[in-house]
Simulated scan of single mutants.
Amino acid sequence: MLDAADATLAVRARDGDVHAYEVIARRHGPLMRVYAARLLGSELESDDVVQDAFLTAWRRLADLDDPSRVRNWLMRIVSNKAVDRLRVRRDHDDVDRLEVSAPRHETPERVVEARLQLDAMWAALDKLPLDQRRCWLLRETADYSYADIAEALDLPVSTVRGKIARARTFLITEMEAWR
């Protein structure tokens, strides 16, 4: 069952096969977590959002029109759940952001420089409008095609291309100091 295509698993899950749905969840859950964490800026919240997305997807499997597109359908659900969470979220400290010690093979200076660069990148991403950030993250972190992003976010492909182009231009400008 682990080697089965998404479409086969989705059809079996729709028929009530819990094991097939578990395989889908294990296959696509890590991507959904990374995407939600980057949108929300919190590992803790991303786990809640992904879990909520999987519950919603399980209840709405009958609404899945094309079983071969189950990944995009799940990403759309997790995206919507993350945006909902952003709308109602209260600011709080995230204990998961505590610094961990640097690996022994890296000098403290290199670790600090890499962390500062990464922080600058996430700060720049946070400045992007939400739709541009969502498009950019799907393209750059999940390697989605423009068509897949358009489908996942329910946008025209031309709009996705424009949003990604504007996001890239903005990020290049923001990260100029790190060249």
Results as ranks from 00 to 15, higher is better:
D48A: 12
R89P: 01
V49S: 03
E99T: 07
S101F: 04
D65N: 10
L44Y: 08
L44I: 08
A37K: 11
D96W: 00
V83R: 15
D94M: 00
D91N: 04
R76P: 01
I77D: 08
K81P: 01
R60M: 02
V70T: 13
S68R: 12
H92F: 08
W58R: 10
S68T: 11
W73F: 09
R90Q: 12
M75P: 05
K81D: 07
R85F: 05
L55S: 14
L61E: 08
V88F: 07
D96I: 00
R97Q: 07
D63L: 13
D91M: 03
S68H: 06
S46P: 03
A37H: 03
L44M: 03
V88M: 02
R60A: 10
L39Q: 06
R38W: 02
S42W: 05
D52S: 14
N72Y: 01
L40P: 10
R69G: 05
L98F: 02
T56S: 12
D65T: 12
V70G: 11
D47M: 10
V49R: 06
G41R: 06
R69K: 14
R97D: 05
R87W: 01
E43K: 12
R89D: 00
M75L: 15
S68C: 03
L55E: 15
R87A: 11
G41H: 06
D65L: 06
A37W: 03
W73R: 09
L39F: 02
V49P: 11
A57W: 11
L55M: 15
T56L: 13
S42G: 04
L44P: 00
D52N: 11
V95F: 00
E43R: 15
W73A: 08
E45C: 03
K81W: 00
E43M: 09
R59W: 07
R59G: 14
G41D: 06
A57M: 05
W58V: 03
L64S: 06
V95I: 03
T56D: 12
S101N: 04
R97F: 00
R89S: 11
R60I: 00
D48G: 08
A57Q: 08
R87Q: 13
D96M: 02
D84A: 15
W73I: 05
R85P: 01
E99G: 00
A57K: 05
L98E: 01
A62L: 03
W58D: 01
D84K: 12
S68G: 14
D48K: 10
L86I: 04
R87E: 10
R69L: 13
